Structure formats: structure tokens, C-alpha cells
Amino acid sequence: MPDFRSDTVTQPTPAMRAAMFDAPLGDDVFGDDPSVNALQEYAAQLLGFEAALFAPSGTQTNLIALWGHCQRGDEAIVGQSWHTYRWEAGGMAVLGSIQPQPVETQPDGTLRITDIAAAIKPDDPHFARTRLVVLENTTGGQVLPPAYVAEVSALARQRGLAMHLDGARMFNAAAANAAKAGTDVYDEARTLCSQFDSASLCLSKGLGAPIGSLVLGSHDFIRQARRTRKILGGGMRQAGVLAAAGRYALEHHVRRMADDHARLAQLAEGLAEANRSHPALKGKITVHPWQTNILFTDLHTDVAPAFTAWLAQHGVRVTSGLYAGQTRLRWVTHLDVSDADIKAALDCVAIFTGG
């Protein structure tokens, strides 16, 4: 059953399960779980930060980081469609007393530099104090160009602001950059992170671990992050069984992300061909540009109900919702989507009758 709903649906591989089973354990709240400590040290060194902290979710690691940069009444500049603003239940405001300042996200996933600059408040008691710029990479599967990230970072430094990366799918961005430049994905990841004071990295999306995220930053930043994690209820005890999965993923599941990108390209090309020539779908599917492992397709209203029902009937699982009056499907490739799954999905599309 091809499951394209999200890269969060992956199951641990047999080798990952073995690493989890064999993991030495301690009590992470006391700081003595060797597997958690090993993951944190490895990730920090891998990505060029001084320290890292393991936590249950990316929502929590983002909030921990935002809280570390901003005090009550401070402001963070975010994208209108950023996960930190739209998809984290308003946590920065509700729990952190941080004012989000959303900026319109452009079609290519960026925020205009001029819009960011205009959103920075002057030093005036009438305004919340702008402290932080948040970027998300990838965003909707789109990669923020390295030169663009460097430009935002230069603006932030000039204005005395910190930079946080919501890097839930950061390694997808690094894999895309590496493929384009002919470089190593780990080198690209370090370069990408070098523009930021802190980063949040999800282990349970494309990396394929069952649970957990990391927040990375300086020693002092992570020392405070540990305290914030406790406040948020994120302290876990024998968490090494989960951390071992994350360490395995960082070591073994990064380079293979290029396979996910290649499979998504094959899926996108097949859907585009259906839009060109399928008797019941011709001119009915808009296939949006893709870069990594996420693809959006829009369905014409006269075919959307029958097509989405057809996919469900044949076990092809996708997420769907209304966007600008049309049904938008999101297709995500990941560790558990094979070449056979791509073929099965396209075969299902090919036999769609439209009735």
C-alpha cells in the first residue's frame, strides 16, 4: 500500500531496531544516558555547533529555541506559512509570550529581504523588540538557495538579530544542494547551518527514526535549552533507546535521501504525463514544481472527488485539502516508498476511469 501522506510514517529498519535494542541506557534527566549523550555530541560535531539537546518533537525543539532567543514581549520574524507560525498551535505566543511577526512567503519559498527589513521594529517602547529571524529549509519541499540564506543572515547580523533554522527537513535541502553542486551532503549541511545561531532538526521525517528532534546551538544556549525542555515536560528518562535510532539515522539514512528525490521526480513526471494524455485527466491536474521529496498537485473540481476516492479505493494514501478553490494533494516520498510503490501509484492513475 503506497503511503505518500508524509515522511513521518516511516518504520524503523531492522538495522535501526537492532541499534535501539542494543543501546546502553541511563537517565537523561540526570544527563547520564550514554546513548543520548552520544547522539547529541555526534550531531553537534556533524553540523558545526557546540552542543545539542534531544527532545520529543520538532514543535518542542523550535519552541525551546525561540524561547532561548526571545524574552516575554520580544518578537520573532517568521514566514506566513512557516511551521513555527502556522502549524505549532501558537506555542511561541501561548507559552513563550513571544510575538510572531509573519512575513508573506513567496512562491519560491523565500521571504523578500525588503519585507524582512521592513518588519524589523525600531527601538521604541511602543513596539515589541525584534530579536530573531526564523527561516525554514526546506519549506513545502522547496530549498532556500544558499546565497539567499547568506543574504538574510547578513541583514540579521547588521541589525543585531539572531537567526534560527527550522530544519525539520534540512538534510533534504542539503541533499538537493549536493546533487546540484556535485558536493558531499554532509558538507552542504554544515554550510547551511553555519548561517544560524540555532537549529532544529527532525529525526523522524526523512531520516526515518521513530521519534525525536534535536535543537543545536552554543554551550550556553543548550544549557538554557535543557531547563526550558524541563519546563515543557520534554525531559525523558531512558531515552537512549530512541536516541540510538536517531544516531543510526544520521549515520546511515542521509545519503539515501537522494533516492527519495529521484522517486518523487519519477512520480511527478508520471502525473504530468497523465495531465497531458490521460483520457479522463487531461488538463485536469496541475503538477507544481518540485525540488526534493514533496510534491503538490491541484485537481480540477469536476474530477477531484472521483480521483481522490479512486486513490483511496486502491490503497494509494495521500493528504488532501482545499486550496484556492481546488483540491490539492500532497505527495511525499520517504524511506518506505519504493520503486514498486511509485509504479503502483502511477498504474492506479493510468486505470482511472473518471466515472
Rank of each mutant, 00 (worst) to 15 (best):
L144Q: 02
P145D: 14
P146Q: 11
P146L: 13
A147C: 03
Y148W: 09
Y148A: 06
Y148V: 05
Y148I: 07
V149D: 01
V149M: 04
A150S: 13
A150F: 08
E151T: 15
V152Q: 02
A154M: 06
A154S: 11
L155I: 03
L155D: 01
A156S: 05
R157M: 07
R157C: 06
R157D: 00
Q158W: 03
Q158V: 04
Q158M: 13
Q158F: 04
Q158T: 14
R159H: 15
G160P: 04
G160I: 12
G160D: 03
L161Y: 09
A162N: 06
A162M: 09
M163E: 01
H164S: 07
H164P: 02
H164V: 10
L165D: 00
L165F: 04
L165W: 03
L165V: 08
L165S: 06
G167E: 02
A168W: 03
A168E: 01
R169T: 14
M170Q: 13
M170L: 15
M170S: 15
F171N: 01
F171C: 03
N172Y: 10
A173M: 01
A173S: 15
A173R: 01
A173P: 00
A174R: 02
A175R: 14
A175K: 05
A175C: 12
A176M: 09
A176G: 06
A176T: 06
N177L: 15
A178Y: 09
A181L: 13
A181M: 10
A181Y: 08
G182W: 13
G182V: 14
T183I: 11
T183P: 08
D184E: 14
D184A: 14
V185T: 15
V185L: 12
Y186K: 06
Y186C: 04
D187C: 09
D187Q: 14
A189D: 01
A189T: 06
R190Y: 07
R190I: 10
R190D: 01
T191P: 00
T191E: 06
